[in-house]
């Protein structure tokens, strides 16, 4: 049964967006359920509602109008809504994810806030994300990448000491012949370092991380076509 009342549908979608923007997980879940009950296209509810909301909060975060607490709660609200809506997406084509990403913080490094946020944003934007946690050795990245057939591997490092692990990940991935693209990030990572490691790109904020992942996923697909 599809929704007749356009204004009602719009209200639900706007409500989903607002729930995320207002850091309100309960409303996000309630409205997601309502969307399902009232037959709003789940993909549309996700993309036009929840993802628009989190994108807005992400932009506010970059502009220093929102901060980590807001971003974390908004991302959780968004993901809670997505978790309810996603299983309802019927058409095969629509269900296709943008790609599989394995992400983690490198060995010796326990900073995980940035990595976690990047992971949440990627997931909210349609990637299938496997967050392997922090303080993870090179082998853990490789193992997971092989296991899930990752399109992208993301490695976060926040200190100058641990960023060398990013280079090791790149080397190991190449050595193992893995095709996945590698993106890196973290407080001490810049363009020069990204190039030095031989990775496929870096990002130092959330929006750039999402755009980079989209770009890498596209390239990856072109190459394998």
């Amino acid at each position: 049964m599809s929704i007749e009342n356009v204004s009602n549908k719009k209200e639900i979608i706007d409500g989903l967006r607002n729930a995320v923007v207002n850091y309100d997980e309960e409303s996000a879940k309630r409205l997601a359920k309502e969307a399902i009950e009232k037959g709003v296209e789940p993909l549309e509810a996700i993309q036009e509602g929840l993802v628009k909301g989190i994108t807005e909060v992400g932009e506010k975060f970059s502009a220093k109008e929102a901060f980590l607490p807001e971003l974390v709660i908004a991302a959780e609200a968004c993901l809670a809504g997505i978790a309810l809506l996603k299983p309802q997406i019927k058409s095969k084509k629509q269900m296709k994810s943008l790609g599989k990403i394995v992400i983690g913080t490198v060995y010796g490094d326990i900073h995980f806030i940035g990595k976690k946020l990047v992971a949440m944003m990627l997931e909210a934007n349609g990637f299938e994300v496997y967050d392997i946690g922090e303080d993870q050795p090179v082998e853990a990245f490789i193992k997971k990448a092989k296991e899930v057939g990752a399109d992208i591997v993301g490695a976060s490092a926040l200190t100058t000491t641990t960023r060398f692990e990013q280079e090791e990940i790149v080397k190991a991935m190449r050595r193992e012949g893995l095709k996945a693209k590698i993106m890196i990030g973290g407080a001490v990572v810049d363009a020069a370092w990204a190039e030095m490691t031989g990775s496929d790109g870096y990002a130092d904020n959330l929006q750039d991380a999402v755009s980079l992942a989209k770009e890498l996923a596209e390239h990856g697909q072109e190459e394998t076509m």
Partner: peptide
């Protein structure tokens, strides 16, 4: 190569 985890999350 340097420091290792000292702060468990």
């Amino acid at each position: 190569e340097g420091t290792h985890s000292v702060y468990p999350n």
